[in-house]
Write a protein that binds this DNA or RNA. Structure first.
Lengths: 198, 198
DNA sequence: GTATAATTCGACCGTCGAGTCGAAATTAGA
DNA sequence: TCTAATTTCGACTCGACGGTCGAATTATAC
């Protein structure tokens, strides 16, 4: 009778540990950099033995991949929140940048580590690149569905619109990661995007 | 009679070696990342023994600092080339971005390594940050002198103008380092900046 | 309760790479 | 040419860190 719930309990515990490892790793990666982070320290912060980390991940590289793939999931989440209520591309763009900056404030580690990856030679492990690219395509499709009509009405192709937003947003995030004041960036970007997109 | 020239010869040789080390280090840093680059490999690429590297630089960290400070010098060079012939802030901005992209094509390693530094936790060694900040101030003064009048006439403060250009340019460079087509970026940025700055 | 499987642990191993050192080579100066 | 100073070199040291392993613990199944 209690067997099924017991089994579920154990599975849940396993998932929790997995998440705890990812979480600890992310924190240390952000604080020290990917190479400088040691498996010993990650284990310690996760509150587990080093051997346990290797029970969940084959290698440090696999752990890095795991962390990055979980970032990819999060990165594109909620980015479009609120964008379907507006018709003006400038407002959509503003909203996207604002959402990004809000996520940055909630979880700066996500972006810090992202930047490390993107700046790394080769742009990070191939598998991670694939995952990001696929998430990006998904996201693009969602944007198209949600705002494509409105963008087209104003003479924007979704692709070029996204290119511009992407480029600009990277600049803003770079500035945020480098320590610039987020409120100022938000205000600045609002003005810039309205001007650019009329 | 030949002593002074001989001495000068030796001094020049020393400077050449110093430069060769910096050069080799930059290449390997860009190709492999700062941590993954080994002193042995740098020595090999520079065509010198490892001990010799340590004769010129106290430590790997000192070498990194040396490389970065030499980058700071180069980074701001020629950025303003051609900007004093125009009155329109949009054209000045375009020109700055174009100059950056041209430098990127000439010497991508410079920007690759810059991005690594900026993305690193803490934004790189403090001394390097200082050097960059001081170069940036110098550059700002030069821009002010060269274009401040024209910018003011059009209602721009030099500081906010530079903030915007800096943010945007980072986004563009990020895209370039990440492998986007430079010509396309150049064209895109031209349109974007004209629109933004009227 | 007991046998089996799954999971955890940290002491241990091997490698790799930063930094050292002293011997060798080169140059300077007389 | 001879001596002292400068510079070069790479074999060596040594600590750090990724990864292993088997013993210990805990859960599962009956």
């Amino acid at each position: 009778m209690i067997h099924p719930p017991e089994r579920r309990l154990r599975e849940r515990q396993k998932e929790e540990r997995y998440a705890a490892i990812i979480q600890a790793a992310l924190r240390i990666f952000a604080a020290k950099g990917l190479q400088q982070a040691t498996m010993d320290e990650i284990a310690q912060v996760a509150g587990l033995g080093k051997g346990t980390i290797y029970y969940y991940f084959d290698s440090k590289e696999a752990l890095i991949e795991g962390v990055l793939c979980s970032l990819a999931d999060q990165y594109f989440q909620n980015l479009l929140e609120g964008t379907d209520a507006f018709k003006d591309p400038a407002v959509i763009a503003e909203r996207i940048v604002t959402n990004l900056l809000e996520r940055y404030q909630q979880q700066p580690e996500l972006f810090q580590v992202m930047q490390m990856i993107l700046a790394a030679p080769g742009g990070g492990p191939p598998r991670v690149r694939e995952v990001f690219a696929s998430k990006h395509r998904e996201w693009l499709a969602r944007l198209k569905e949600q705002a494509g009509q409105k963008l087209a009405e104003r003479g924007f192709s979704v692709e070029s619109f996204v290119d511009f937003i992407g480029t600009y947003a990277h600049g803003v995030l770079f500035a945020a990661v480098a320590g610039r004041d987020v409120e100022k960036l938000r205000e600045e970007s609002r003005r810039a995007l309205r001007a650019f997109l009329q």
